[in-house]
Design a protein around this nucleic acid. Structure first.
Lengths: 213, 213
DNA sequence: CGTTTAGTTGAACCTTATCAAGCCCTGTGG
DNA sequence: CCACAGGGCTTGATAAGGTTCAACTAAACG
């Protein structure tokens, strides 16, 4: 981002801290905000009326949240951990986009990447079994957090708990738990000091599971 | 779209007819093209290496196809019926976007709508059962093709066959077929003159199935 | 400590996939 | 004109993968 763009954004943005668990935007509410994630993590969820929930996206440091040019927020956004957001009132943000074409270009590219992402997840949700989804998820976490070509046994910190993994992968808590213990007893992964810190013992095996044939 | 934008686009576009079944873009190939759908219909698919397929989007008249600013095409696009496309070489299309900010804005808005769409489908694929998916699909077709507030018994033409419905909904052909016959015997829909032309007998019932509670 | 919360494990059940036949329509060639 | 082959769809029987319900464990917290 260029200096004047950053400046223009910071002129309309205000920082706000959201404690873990707090909802930033409710689905159906008037869409008043866009934001940049300064630190922390958020989940973007879609729900059925009867309470079933699907996590349709996870947002981390540097990610963009919200939808300009839309009157009603279609999705609920919730802080997973304590999260620092830089909030932009939507109308001001839209004006800034108009004034800085490079910014709009950037947003377009990000939106298209999100779309690609969403489509890969549709493949996963529609056509993969529980093992493949879990393995794919672990590989995604690796890609997101581990520097390229780090030496094996890798250690990763799962960004979400079992329940949220289930909501992300379209499974139940129990299935997620069982598949993880299966990967563990197969010697592919291991857990130490807690259910969230996971060691990748055999990455190749994980890839073979996630991407068969 | 404004006159000069249309002109700029038509200057770089060339029309081409694709017969039904023909692939327009292969996933993994160099991404050389974007296009507008002049007439006909296309499917956008993601696949696993071992051949499972998920339809991640359907494109109709007026829809935009392709991904500017990406070097490798991530998805396969196939003509469902004979389809007339207006093709743009990607580099020229990107230059045109830069020259006509309103055009880029338009594309951004479309991309965001596609993203919303994709996320709703994630909810469907991850959290809804076969009946709900089928009912939701039928309602989507209605929304797309029937004028608002048309009188009941509605008649719609299914844009795709059973196999493609299955690939779209993350089900099998057999399950799609069974759920449709179930809706038929429940008196919610009916079929005349062929498997593709479907009469909506009871739209409210369909909505109650698609959106429980 | 007792309570709560997250995770694991087990057993029964259910939805959907899988495999296999059969049907209907269309187009083709004898 | 009829037999027949092929594609798209339906239907049935069976099986598997996941869900559900329930009990249990372990760590966290007052």
């Amino acid at each position: 981002m260029l200096d004047d763009e950053l400046e223009a954004l910071s002129a309309i943005g205000r920082r706000k801290l959201f404690p873990g668990g707090q909802v930033v935007t409710w689905s159906g509410d008037p869409n008043t905000l866009c934001a940049n994630v300064v630190s922390g993590a958020l989940k973007v969820t879609a729900s059925t009326e009867d309470g079933r929930e699907q996590i349709v996206g996870l947002l981390y440091q540097g990610d963009f949240a919200g939808q300009p040019f839309v009157e009603e927020a279609p999705l609920t956004i919730t802080a997973l951990t304590d999260t620092d957001l830089c909030l932009f009132p939507r109308p001001a943000f839209e004006r800034t986009l108009g004034a800085y074409p490079r910014l709009e270009r950037l947003l377009l590219q990000r939106t298209m990447r999100s779309l690609d992402d969403a489509r890969q997840r549709m493949l996963s949700l529609g056509r993969k079994n529980a093992q493949e989804r879990i393995a794919g998820f672990l590989l995604d976490v690796i890609e997101r957090t581990v520097p390229r070509g780090a030496p094996m046994p890798l250690s990763i910190e799962l960004p979400i708990g079992r329940g949220e993994m289930a909501d992300f992968l379209g499974l139940t808590i129990e299935t997620v738990s069982r598949q993880l213990t299966r990967l563990k007893s197969d010697g592919v992964i291991a857990f130490e000091k807690g259910d969230r810190s996971c060691t990748i013992v055999n990455r190749a095996a994980l890839e073979a599971i996630a991407y068969p044939l």
